[in-house]
Amino acid sequence: MLNKQAVMNLLNKINMIILCQLRNLWRFNLKALVIIPAFNEEENIVKTVNSLINIKISNVKLDYIIINDGSNDNTLDVIKKNKLKFIDLPFNLGIGGAVQTGYKYALYKNYDIAIQFDGDGQHNPSYIESLIKELNNGCDLVIGSRYIENNDTFKSTKYRRMGKNILSFLIKIFTSAKITDPTSGFRACNKKIIKKFADNYPSDYPEPDTLVSILKDKYIVKEISVEMNERAGGTSSITPIKAIYYMIKVSFSIIITAISKREK
């Protein structure tokens, strides 16, 4: 009688162990968070998220979070109506503040990978897999670049190209790294960079600035070629006058970041 129970217990234990092992085998090893900053994106946000949900990557559990950056249109209502996951900022912080909120969320929730992804439908989610692949190959930050293969699928004006070239040149001077698309908002990074970004992230037009500080800290940055769509709807937030101000400000902050002592 006693013996029988002991055998049953033993069998149960073995069963449990096998189940646990199996579950471990099937469990996703990596948690990835797609950060979608959204400011007045009522037309695009649902489409963007829907295109994301369908992406399946082996070994990676892909979550998303929308950061509603104090939109003054119906973005929040649209998000709520479609039951999407979101964080609602109490007022507009600008793109930098919104993206940083995503990084903080990723840090608190212990995500392994964070991916920046625009809410306006410019980015193609099918490239997320290749971004993550490069991270697994040992990169710290992977950028989706529009210009790496000189493909002319992405319509860009002469001035935009010029601005981009100036920024690339500045980055090359100060960090001797070749970055073809420094303003790209399609980026993926690992835990180390999530921590860094959650602690410190510039408030507006942050991409080139953060790149310089990361390159100075000797992290490994890599670019992969992606195609980007034209905006599906809504209007872009950058006007010509703002563009000039942007160039001056970004160049200035690149230089300041580059000549400041790095803190590590």
């Binding site: 964080i87 609602d88 900022l89 109490p90 503040g97 940083q100 909120t101 903080k104 969320y105 408030s203």
Partner: peptide
């Protein structure tokens, strides 16, 4: 002050979530 407000806004939003 601006930095502090940004920090507070982000933390409030994450807490609300």
């Amino acid at each position: 002050l601006n930095d502090k407000t940004t920090f507070l806004a982000q933390e409030v939003a994450i807490l609300k979530n």
